[in-house]
Amino acid sequence: MNNEMNCSIATGTGENYMNSVHRWGRIWNLSVMIILFAFPVAVGLIFRALPDLKGLGLGLLATAPMYWAVGIVETFTYIPMLGAGGSYLSFVTGNISNLKLPCALNALDQAGVKGNSDEGEVLSTIAIAVSSIVTTLIIVLGVVLLIPLRPLLENPVLDPAFAQILPALFGALGVVFVSRNWKISIAPIVLMLILFISIPALNSGTVGIMVPVSVIFTLIVSRIMYKKGWL
């Protein structure tokens, strides 16, 4: 049993499992893509309304190029961190950097396993799936109770708390991961501090773009340190 547990995801039943994850992941994601398109199509058919072509074209031109570019970069950045099952789920359910990935990271940290291991794949998928289910159910509850909850949700006293989710989240996560990987953490943290403090355009709206920059920089620095025998 232990041998099987320790085996790489590339061998034995692990390979079958991974093939199954990819097969079902493709089926689910492509199905979700189709039904997401079905929403505006169905609304149009039911209410006999065609899209405004000028609005559609100009709206896409103003919105899509940036988000397509970010989407492509995010896909290549996050897949190695989320694992296969976690990736298929996260790119459908969203909130990757502020919810799904921290959730997976916390699960791996608690269990003391590496993300690229067989166990890591299982645990990160479980964490992300549970997080997606809970998020969906809480939103359903919120929608059902939106009218009575509105005064509480829009209470200005609570505004600062919800405005500071990311600092609170990455303060807690950061202290764990930076302390465990301090050698490879120094250079990217220093670079990001310099960039974010000195360039006014870098803010909450652009932090997503800086994630791949920081990841690539960290990989380069780590590779150099590894080659020099410092790690």
């Binding site: 990455f170 465990r180 990217p188 990001m192 403090i197 800086m210 994630v211 780590s222």
Partner: peptide, 28 residues
């Protein structure tokens, strides 16, 4: 194997570093 582990840790650290930088974006 060792580099694969460092690679994985570097990706996580890189992501966290970006968000830690963001925390300081208005400090000036």
């Amino acid at each position: 194997k060792k580099w694969a582990d460092i690679f994985s840790a570097s990706m996580f650290v890189g992501m966290i570093a970006a968000f830690l930088g963001f925390v300081f974006c208005d400090v000036s």
